[in-house]
Amino acid sequence: MSEATASRTTAPGSDGPMIEIDHLNKWYGSFHVLRDINLTVTKGERIVICGPSGSGKSTMIRCINHLEEHQQGSIVVNGVPMTNDVKRIEQIRRNVGMVFQHFNLFPHLSVLENCCLSQIWVQKKPRAEAEKTAMEYLERVQIADQALKYPGQLSGGQQQRVAIARALCMRPEVMLFDEPTSALDPEMIKEVLDVMIELAHEGMTMLCVTHEMGFAKTVADRVIFMDQGQIIEEAPPHEFFNNPRSERTQLFLSQILGH
């Protein structure tokens, strides 16, 4: 399984690394949750990460914006090496948007205020300008008409689209998606995926933990399969789905596609 991790592939037509993860190791107490992760993501690349639950895929992308701390190895985001320095971490986070499984919108703020908050307080934009940007992105995720509502008044799919708009308002260089459709009712998954597909076509660098294999086939440049805290296999989607090399991958695919 180490042949796959050793060879790093880069997507064609890209210009330099956006994220470089080098020999990343992380433990929860004595539990070795990430084992020697190596991953380079070039600008504009779209990566789908899948694997059984507990395989460390969420933990890995959460290390990229330091929601999780790692113990060994290095992470460089857009040329900035990750350290434990709060200023440095905040600098990296400004360039990295994140969308969560449970949306994590701020329930005490309206949709518009959710989108303006970090623009005003982190980017120090005047309110009017922040609202203009917010409305632009709310328009793009087709939810501008709900701007004055509170998150609790929206459906799950709508909330997740707001969460995407909120992240985009910061004009990030990378977007991290942590199982963005896993908490949604089946009929709402498509509206969120459509937004993500559109984003992918616009050239956003994306790392996406998801079990939506249709999405992976449509937009991914690379699919990464993780198990037990390590990268088992990484391949372009057609190769990954049609011709998986590792047995674990074959087993996993047969389990999720086999019914």
Partner: peptide, 25 residues
């Protein structure tokens, strides 16, 4: 925990997260 994490991911500092997100709720 998600509320704090969402604030972190947006680049808000500890006091901003506390004052704007956590304490009001």
């Amino acid at each position: 925990k998600g509320q704090n994490e969402a604030g972190q991911a947006l680049g808000l500092s500890y006091w901003q997260r506390t004052g704007l997100i956590i304490l009001p709720q």
